[in-house]
Structures are given as structure tokens and as C-alpha cells.
Amino acid sequence: MKNLKKRRRIQVIVLAFVALAVSTALIGYAMQDGINFFRSPSEVAEAPPAPNETFRIGGLVEEGTLVRGEGDTIKFNVTDGGASIPVTFKGVLPDLFEENQGMIGTGSYVNGVFEADEILAKHDETYMPKEVVDALKEQGVYQEPES
């Protein structure tokens, strides 16, 4: 009788660990497409990610690089003061998107060009995403907005 209780207790503990491991693996698998890491242009230039990896890049739209192509293709460079990465985007840009302004793009880095699926721009004249501010401060080119 005592041996049966001990065996049952061990089975329940093993089953609980297996259920925990399976649920953790399923959660990790489900979230792998939903997690987009932020990288600055300097980080992308130093260690280019794989072409199939989706990530976010942010910085300032480099002055003089914004080119509207034929159709809905837009090309520009994004910089953090340390490196400049060429970006292509097909679609409609946000209204507040312009040169020397902060932006964040989601997409992948293929053949030396960041191919953006989504572009986000600042939503007022003083806002800049925290990740972009941190990257610019790290490069020593961030300037506090005037009040």
C-alpha cells in the first residue's frame, strides 16, 4: 500500500513536469513570429542579421536620401550617427515622415538593404521612440528637443 502511494506520487510529479515542458515549448513556438527585436543601424552594420529574420530598425531619416520611386516604392537611409543603412519600403508613408526625423521600421535585411514591411514615424514634433533615443545617445548625436 505504501509502495503504491509512493509510485503514484512520482507519476503525478513526472506528469506535471512533462506538462510544464510541453506548455513552455508551445508558448515559445507560438511567440517566435511575434517577437521583433530592435536594432540600431550601427548594430545592423556590425553584425548583419539573417535575411529571414524579422526585426525593427530605428534612427533618423538621413538628410538628402529620401527618394520616391516609380509607383509606391520609397528609398531612404536610416542613421544613428554611427552607420547608415539603406531602406526600401512599398506603401504609403505616415504623414509626419520626413528627413531628419525619427522613425522605426519593421522588416528584414536582405543583400545589404533593409526591406521594410511597416514604417512608423513620430506622432508629434517632440516625440521620438525610446529605442531610437537610446541608440542616438549611445552614438553621441542625440539632442534634447527645445521646449
Rank of each mutant, 00 (worst) to 15 (best):
Y127N: 07
K90M: 13
I85K: 11
R8W: 10
V67K: 11
K2Q: 09
I119R: 01
V22K: 03
N111H: 15
A19L: 11
A45R: 02
K122R: 14
P41G: 03
A116L: 04
E98Y: 14
F89Y: 04
L4I: 09
F37H: 09
S40M: 00
G64E: 02
T88A: 04
V61Q: 00
A121F: 00
E46W: 05
P51Y: 06
R9M: 04
H123N: 13
V92C: 14
Q101A: 12
G69N: 08
F76M: 03
E99L: 11
Y109E: 02
G102P: 07
L96Q: 03
K2A: 05
I119T: 00
L96S: 03
A25R: 13
V67S: 13
A50T: 10
V113P: 13
T73P: 07
G71W: 09
L4A: 03
A30H: 13
Y29A: 13
K90G: 09
V78E: 09
S40Y: 00
D72H: 11
N77W: 01
T65A: 02
A121I: 02
P94K: 11
L93Y: 10
S42Y: 08
P41D: 02
Y142F: 02
P129H: 02
K130Y: 05
L93P: 03
D134C: 01
K130V: 15
M31V: 10
E46I: 05
S40F: 00
T73N: 04
Q11E: 12
A45F: 10
L136Y: 02
V12G: 12
V110W: 04
V14E: 01
T88N: 06
V92M: 15
N36M: 12
R8D: 06
I10M: 14
K6H: 12
F55I: 07
R68G: 03
L136M: 02
P41W: 01
A47R: 14
S147K: 08
D134K: 03
L15V: 08
E62F: 10
Q139I: 06
N36V: 11
T126D: 08
T126S: 12
E43D: 01
P94W: 13
Y29W: 15
L26I: 12
P41R: 01
R7T: 01
M31W: 09
G82Q: 10
G71P: 02
A16D: 08
P145A: 10
E53F: 07
V132L: 04
I13S: 05
A116S: 05
Y109A: 02
L26M: 09
A47V: 14
A50L: 15
V14N: 04
E53I: 04
Y127S: 07
K130Q: 05
N100M: 15
I27Y: 09
V141S: 06
I27L: 14
A50Y: 10
P129A: 02
G81F: 00
K75G: 09
D124H: 14
G34Y: 13
L120E: 15
Q101K: 08
A47D: 13
Q139L: 07
E62V: 06
F17E: 05
T126E: 05
L120M: 12
